[in-house]
Write a protein that binds this DNA or RNA. Structure first.
Lengths: 339, 339
DNA sequence: TTATTCTGCTAAAAGGTTTTACCTAAATTA
DNA sequence: TAATTTAGGTAAAACCTTTTAGCAGAATAA
């Protein structure tokens, strides 16, 4: 019913004081502004009594800050991104910030549009998994003094803070692990895009092969631009046309899921006939029989660093080019010893 | 650098017209307000030229609407909630709304605090998975004319819109399925809380037993209030102390994951020794060997209905007590025929 | 005593919109 | 011709804060 919110003005009138006085008291500047303790008490009591809360919108307008951070990821329903969302949420709320999310679908046009609408929404900061071709927009954002932190991948030619992981090193280690297990014909399944993290993973894979006699076969799937069935078919096709493969590296977990599906269909014995390794660990990999080796990204640290950089930029206007690269953890599992 | 945003006033001055005129044109009321086409064109050209976008904050203040919906779920990193988040996002953005998320952790105090801060943020609508003891707050929200839609579970004594699924019926069907497969000793593993959806699932399970000779054993785990290890231990303990069980119903997928873990540890053969059924389907259930039967909630429909109800309330101030109950799909799988 | 400082408080502007109420000159109607 | 309507616009209030600049009176200093 009574949608009418009480404002500072109402309080001032009810108490017969000025708006200014109430505002000072509300903002803890009573002492500083020489409001008597008596008056302060009176106003505070009244505010508590009627349960007044200031309008954040009016504050935003006046102060030019919305206390909102936008979290733009490829797909919020992806386990990895959802987990990060969960973790940054806590820190944001603790510091008085709210988080708006959106999924870019790795679509540059869509992402640009989203950024443009967020700008007019006066959001204070952007946490972004950049799509290809976003250089200009991000540069503009920085010029206009927005707080920006990239993650998961970064943009080579833009001097912007980011938090990523050691993609190349971890991929190399995991590949070497396959080689040590005796694999001679290695497959690499990745998404067909120029995202830096995927490139780095492939570089790591290739580097591990140097100086060994292992052979390799690579499949790039346009995972998000084609239908899931089609992606699935491509992967199945890859494995049927490469029966020699005795080890596979999946550059991300959803590819591994599809790959697993395909290999089971083909009747391959894991790990006897073919060994698997995947980037992005998942509860599932530990539960599958046999459990599957995977590279675990340090999501707590990623989230922590993301919000640290973001808050630093927001509160102190700190330098914008903090580059953080975190180590991953290789969870060895396919030893068939379940624990 | 140039953080100074151009405002309607700047445009008015530059063109030597009044603010009102510009505003009318911006809001497509030029004709209605009898602004000449010539003037309209001039202003529109200028606006396009300088790329002006109105300040949403100022609009919010003036109109009392923020065009923000808050999505309050138990845990945004949970696959089910994250998937819904992804789907409602699209519809929200299409209608000019943004979505703020937060995780309640099923903690009533925390939830109340969150709602309170959102109110002063002037959010327009609330989509909530209600925690126990939230009756008052939700009722208040409705009284104050906020748009509210509950989902996943509802609050018995409050007349508020919601979108839920046929928990009881589906649980009953799944249990009957176990019985038809020949299970005589059924376990039911659920979370220890009074959430309506969990109660309904248990009711369905129990109802399926009526008139049969099957026996049952029930475990309630305080999943979120105790550590994950401890929950895991409880479940392991349950299965070791109930070796007679030849069928289990898990009331949600993360319990099934833990249960699976425990059963594998105990060396149980699935499905020969014990058959499994879980609420909330998951990619994983189809991939596991043998694949596991599960009840799939219609997340697209849930999301669709959620946003429909929400937008109806927001745009037309429609009646608030729309109760939608959607059917689930029982995905039969443990037949060991992999497809 | 006069000049200065301090105490306690307030008026008003600014932030960017939307919208109501109104104005003037030209055109139409009676 | 006189009265009314229409065309084309505008001034100003309202939404709710924060903050600057300042005011009157009391206390202190010179």
């Amino acid at each position: 019913m009574a949608k009418k919110k009480t404002s500072i003005k109402d309080i001032a009138e009810a108490l017969g004081v000025s708006i200014t006085t109430v505002s000072f008291i509300l903002n803890g500047k009573a002492r500083e502004k020489r409001i008597s303790d008596e008056m302060t008490g009176k106003v505070q009591d009244y505010i508590k009594k009627i349960g007044y809360k200031p309008s954040h919108i009016a504050q935003s307008l006046r102060l030019g800050k919305s206390k909102i951070i936008v979290f733009m990821v490829e797909d919020i329903s992806n386990q990895f991104f959802a987990s990060i969302a969960r973790l940054i949420e806590e820190k944001a709320y603790k510091n008085g910030y709210k988080i708006i999310y959106c999924s870019t679908e790795n679509d540059t046009i869509k992402t640009k549009e989203l950024i443009s609408t967020f700008k007019m929404r006066n959001v204070d900061g952007f946490i972004i998994t950049p799509t290809p071709g976003l250089e200009h927009v991000v540069r503009k954002l920085l010029e206009e003094d927005f707080a920006v932190v990239l993650f998961d991948r970064w943009i080579p030619d833009v001097d912007c803070s980011y938090v990523v992981v050691e993609n190349k090193l971890s991929a190399k280690e995991a590949t070497q692990h396959l080689i040590h297990q005796g694999c001679k014909n290695l497959g690499f399944v990745t998404v067909d895009s120029s995202q830096t993290q995927m490139n780095d993973r492939m570089d790591g894979f290739l580097e591990a092969l140097i100086g060994t006699e292992a052979k390799s076969a690579i499949l790039k799937v346009k995972f998000h631009t084609i239908s899931e069935q089609e992606a699935s078919r491509k992967i199945l096709e890859f494995f049927s046309s490469h029966p020699e493969l005795d080890g596979v590296f999946f550059s991300t977990n959803y590819l591994a899921f599809e790959g697993l599906h395909a290999l089971i269909k083909l009747g391959k014995k894991i790990p006897e006939q073919i060994r698997l390794v995947s980037f992005d660990d998942h509860y599932f990999f530990n539960l599958f029989q046999p459990p599957i080796t995977a590279i675990e990204q340090p999501i707590e640290e990623i989230a922590e660093n993301l919000m640290d950089l973001m808050l630093k930029q927001l509160e102190h206007g700190e330098v914008q080019n903090n580059k953080i690269i975190l180590p991953n953890k290789l969870n060895l599992r396919e030893s068939s010893v379940y624990k």
